[in-house]
Amino acid sequence: MGTFEDRLLERLVQEHGESLTQPPPSPARGRRRRVAVVSGFIGVAAATAAVVYLVGAGTPAYAVSRTADGVTVRISDLDALDAANAELRRLGVPVVAVPRTTDCRETFVTSSNDSTGDTVADPVGAGSEVTASIQGLPVGSTVVIAAEQEGDRVLLSLAKPVRGKIPGCLATLPTVPGGSVVSPRTPTTAGR
């Protein structure tokens, strides 16, 4: 127990101790607002687009826009994943973007065949922008977009929709020399 440590604690309690007994601000307001936004979207289905730039960057960090049957997502910086997902949530679309890493050990259930794993994205169609359709998507399912850094750009690819728990990441497919992709792993091991 040191001098500075003790004196600082003493001063903190003396000068700010009152705030310890005050009730915390209610978080309910934010929650109600979010529900209202989602409900409003379902009723009106208005076309919405959001483009966000990183400070000092010339290209947008992410862009999310509604299409007739889904949403188009563009991400140019992996640090913008959270913000892009917040925008997707705000739009009320069951689409989520997750990082793709080699050490991912997440488990999940795909909505198409209820198997565990095997939601590996189709790397053939990978690009800086993907359009996800949510038409006919089973209730409780979520479309997953895998985001992976490749050199200076972020590659996005669509994975199979998942049901229930949304994985925080997807496993990277092993690649062979020349850039072609080795076959996806079996449903029980992919996307661990």
């Binding site: 992996l78 994943l81 997750v98 990082p99 050490d103 925080g168 990441c169």
Partner: peptide
Amino acid sequence: QVSPGALRIRLFR
């Protein structure tokens, strides 16, 4: 204040 997924990718990178 980032998601665990974003943290993982940042750490990996």
